[in-house]
């Protein structure tokens, strides 16, 4: 199969690679770029484990071909704490026991990070609706919902302190 060039920025770093047009973006990220923090759980867009941020949007990387990401900016879970310090959401996942096996966690962090950027004051119902795009078989979602709620509260406090 012929190869196509893909130029993509992931977590601030440029990657220029030749790939088969049928290669999934999730495989590209994991195998070609070696960023194994993004996980693959179903390859049909239901479980949400492979969620990444592409050009400011949380998307399923198993439903996108690598060639579609040409000239795009991607953030994966490895890019969240790039300064070495965990984000507030990541910290609250620890605090609220929002993860057990951790396999679905990367996708959830990517979805919720995007969600909170766009909806800084979500209701619990909205949080749960957003999480409905992710399967977690360990936690029963309780710790995850709490971690997101706490992040919203922390952000509110920060905003109040600033004003």
């Amino acid at each position: 199969m012929s190869l196509t060039e893909v130029n993509v920025t992931i977590n601030g770093k440029s990657y220029s690679e030749w790939v088969e047009p049928r290669m999934l973006l999730s495989d590209f990220i994991r195998e070609t770029c070696g960023l194994t923090g993004t996980h693959v759980g179903c390859e049909h867009g239901v479980c949400g484990a492979c969620t990444i941020n592409m050009d400011g949007l949380a998307v399923r990387s198993c439903l996108i071909f690598a060639v579609q990401a040409d000239n795009c900016e991607i953030t994966t879970v490895e890019g969240l704490a790039c300064s070495g310090e965990l984000t507030a959401l990541q910290k609250n996942f620890i605090e609220c026991h929002g993860l057990q096996c951790g396999f679905c966690t990367a996708g959830i962090l990517m979805s919720i990070t995007d969600f909170l950027e766009k909806n800084p004051q979500p209701s619990v119902k909205e949080i749960k609706e957003t999480l409905s795009g992710h399967l977690c078989r360990c936690t029963g979602y309780e710790g995850i919902v709490k971690a997101v709620e706490k992040t919203v509260q922390d952000n509110n406090k920060e905003v109040l302190q600033r004003s």
Partner: peptide
């Protein structure tokens, strides 16, 4: 107490079979 496993799992540094 919070878990020692969490740091690696939250930063994409878990080591599962495919990694």
């Amino acid at each position: 107490v919070t878990r020692v496993e969490d740091m690696r799992l939250l930063t994409g540094q878990g080591k599962y079979i495919d990694d």
